[in-house]
Amino acid sequence: MSNTATTPATNSATAKQGRTVRFRILRCDGPGKPSYWSEFDVQPELNANVISCLKQIAEKPVMVDGKEVTPVVWDSGCLEEVCGACTMVINGKVRQSCTCLIDDYAPRDGDTITLEPMSKFPVVRDLWVDRERLFHNLKRVKAWVPIDNTYSLGPGPKESPESQQTHYKLSECMSCGCCLEACPQFTIEEDESKWNNAFIGAHAISQARLFNNHETGKQLKGERLDELAGPGGVADCGNAQNCVKVCPKEIPLTESIGAMGRATTIHKIASFFSGKK
């Protein structure tokens, strides 16, 4: 396992208990409303993370200037970095807030942590964004195995352990959106009717690879590759390769992009000469 941006050098040994940490939070009351910064002071508990601090703020939403405000709204779920819900931009970089330990990010008294909502998705309120487009993109590439039905028809195809390890890695993707937030080529698009032609992003490209490699999933390979060859498909990738660096699950996204690049090339050349669509 290589070190990534998500595993910061641990400062827990030097972090001082009882210190005060300042949270600068970019808030927004709702779609179309202006964004503004609010500051809160928190005395983090032992082993605190951003979530536990936000909970403290929710319990006592008093700003640094003494003004009482509404609790900060944020999205969260499992708090173990497997559901992807609590993704936000912390100190300028996207990541899950549950694994963001205060001892690492603010070990000294008076240290500041800034929280912003993800910028590539429309804000619902405060730190909560609407990531529907992410799931829509999974539909674009038909990210599923087209089984006949849910009745008992015997086991699925056999698979080598090597192949399983590759698939498992790709299948760990929790649709958190880090890869899209960090991608310079993936931009915010609030108009749903434009989603189908806008860049699909590393997340869905990698899922297309996962299902194209599955024995039964292969049946939809052509449709997936047609989608990836079209507008907003894999060719839109500008190879900035931020996706792979911010992926909390260390999914080889750039390899998926390369693999789908190759697959679309072959698919298109083959269909050019075979006369199919």
Binding site: W144, I147, Y151, L153, P155, E159, Q164
Partner: peptide
Amino acid sequence: LLDRMGVPFNR
């Protein structure tokens, strides 16, 4: 069934 759906069970 889960196997057919593509769950990457360890092998």
